[in-house]
Simulated scan of single mutants.
Amino acid sequence: MADLQDDLHAADEVTELDGLMSGEAVAVLGADAYTLVSDPDSEPLERAHAILAAHPVADGYTGLPWVLRHLPWYDLELGESSVDTDLPRLRDGHVGALLWSLHLPEGLTGDRAVGATLEQLDLVKSVARAYPEGLRLAGTAGQVADARNHGRIAVLLGPATAAALGDSLGILRSLHALGLRALTLSGASWASGAGLTRFGEEVVREMNRLGVVADVSGASEDTVRRVFAVSKAPVLCTRSAARALRPHPANLPDELLAELGAAKGLCMVPMTAEQTGPTVRDVADHLDHVRAVAGPGSVGLSGTYDAGTAHPRELRDPSGYPHLVAELLRRGWPESDIALLTWGNVQRVLRGADFTARAAQLRREPSTARISDLDG
Rank of each mutant, 00 (worst) to 15 (best):
L157I: 08
G200S: 06
A160D: 02
E202G: 05
G158T: 07
G170K: 10
G187N: 06
A182S: 15
G179C: 10
E201S: 03
L183K: 11
E206S: 11
L165Q: 15
A182P: 07
L169T: 14
R205L: 09
L165S: 15
S186T: 12
L210C: 14
R181T: 11
L210H: 12
H176M: 03
R181C: 02
L157E: 02
V203L: 06
V155N: 14
L169Q: 12
G193A: 07
L180D: 12
L175D: 03
T197P: 01
N208G: 08
V204W: 00
G211K: 10
R205T: 11
V216A: 03
W190A: 08
G170S: 14
S186I: 02
L196R: 01
A194L: 05
S168C: 06
V216P: 00
L183W: 07
I171G: 04
D167F: 00
A162S: 15
A160C: 04
A162M: 13
L210W: 08
I171K: 07
V213S: 04
R181Y: 03
E202I: 05
S192A: 03
A162K: 06
S186A: 12
L180N: 11
L156R: 01
L172H: 08
V212T: 14
A214D: 03
L196G: 02
L169M: 12
G179A: 11
M207H: 11
A177Q: 11
L178M: 14
T184F: 05
S174E: 13
G193Y: 04
G200T: 05
L172E: 07
E202Q: 13
G170T: 14
S217V: 02
G195Y: 05
R209L: 01
L210S: 12
F199A: 04
L156H: 01
F199C: 06
A194I: 01
R209H: 06
S189G: 14
L178T: 06
S174A: 14
R198S: 10
A164M: 01
A177I: 06
M207Q: 11
T184G: 12
A188Q: 09
E206L: 04
S168N: 08
V216F: 00
V203Q: 08
V212H: 10
V203P: 00
R198A: 12
E206R: 08
R181W: 01
F199P: 08
S174G: 13
G200Y: 00
S217I: 02
G187H: 07
E201D: 02
A160F: 00
L175Y: 04
A177N: 10
L185V: 13
A164F: 00
A191T: 09
R181G: 03
A163S: 15
L165E: 12
V213K: 02
M207C: 14
A162D: 10
L169R: 14
S186H: 10
L185S: 12
R181S: 04
R173S: 11
V203S: 09
T161E: 03
R205P: 00
A177K: 13
V212I: 15
L196T: 02
S192W: 00
A214L: 01
S192N: 05
G200Q: 04
S174L: 10
S189V: 08
A182F: 07
G195C: 06
S168Y: 04
V155T: 15
A164N: 03
L196S: 02
R205W: 01
L169A: 12
A162Y: 01
A194K: 09
T184P: 06
L175P: 04
N208Q: 09
E206F: 01
G195I: 04
A164K: 00
V204Q: 10
